[in-house]
């Protein structure tokens, strides 16, 4: 049986790890390689690095730190941020990333997902989706790394979840923006809805604040992994303790 994945998310700005609340007020958390090593030692199953300034500034990720992480870390990691063509993706993958995640650039040009899947295989291509709850349903947002430049691409989240799979995405990270940073739990309703339309692995993102939130998202939304930042970075939840607790509640974790 495949274990669920606990995935610390490291937001990267100018080569340092930062974290904001509701995508604003970023505070510095520390050095990338040091934090990545610490999470590897704690038993994190995977790491995600988001270069949060890359997409709004229309520049691609700096691969220097990707290489430093790859030299040190022996668990899988995914890099996101401003990857908008096959050549850039190749640079990031050759620097040692296992997967690349595309979000805003895929909304600019959906064919990007197909081009990446053709070049590297679906298993390398993650679709990151920022989704917000509106009266009409769940809707996608673009350039969320910079609230002043955030865009409404006029897309329904559910239809985008289906489209990225058709285009060849091998995994989806669904960031539920209403829940993000407020630590009141994952958006179970939204994740259950998307899960029903998702054949590839689905990773929950946004809202983790307590061990019960992880249990609930694995039990009720049947997601393959749960991504979190603040609760891990702050030390509020220690990954080995969380795994022990989840295992006691019959969730399959890598021990």
């Amino acid at each position: 049986m495949v274990a669920v994945r606990l995935i610390p998310c490291l937001d990267v700005r100018d080569g340092r790890v930062v974290k904001g609340v509701r995508f604003r007020n970023h505070r510095e958390m520390g050095d990338i390689v040091e934090l990545a090593s610490s999470y590897r030692d704690q038993g994190a199953d995977e790491l995600v690095f988001y270069d949060i300034t890359a997409s709004p500034q229309r520049r691609s990720v700096d691969v220097g730190w990707v290489e430093r992480v790859a030299e040190t870390i022996d668990i899988p990691f995914c890099v996101a941020g401003g990857i908008r063509d096959v050549a850039t993706a190749r640079t990031v993958l050759h620097a040692g990333a296992d997967k690349i995640s595309v979000n805003s650039p895929a909304l600019e040009r959906p064919a990007l997902i197909a081009e990446l899947a053709d070049a590297f295989g679906s298993q390398c291509v993650v679709a990151g989706i920022d989704s917000i709850r509106e009266a009409s349903g769940f809707r996608v947002r673009q350039y969320t790394g910079d609230p002043d430049n955030m865009v409404d691409p006029r897309r329904d989240t559910l239809s985008w979840v289906e489209e990225v799979q058709r285009l060849g995405a091998g995994e989806i990270v669904l960031n539920c923006m209403d829940a993000d940073g407020v630590r009141e739990g994952y958006d179970i309703d939204q994740l259950v809805l998307m899960r029903a339309h998702c054949r590839v692995p689905l990773i929950a993102s946004g809202g983790a604040g307590a061990p019960e939130h992880f249990l609930k998202v694995f039990e009720q939304a049947d997601v393959d992994g749960a991504l979190a930042a603040t609760v891990f970075h702050s030390g509020q939840i220690h990954i080995p303790d969380l795994k022990t607790w989840l295992a006691r509640h019959h969730i399959i974790v890598r021990s």
Binding site: M1, R5, D45, S122, E171, P201
Partner: peptide, 10 residues
């Protein structure tokens, strides 16, 4: 079950 088989297994 999901494809790809992606994650940690024994």
């Amino acid at each position: 079950l999901r494809l790809p088989h992606m994650g940690w297994n024994q």
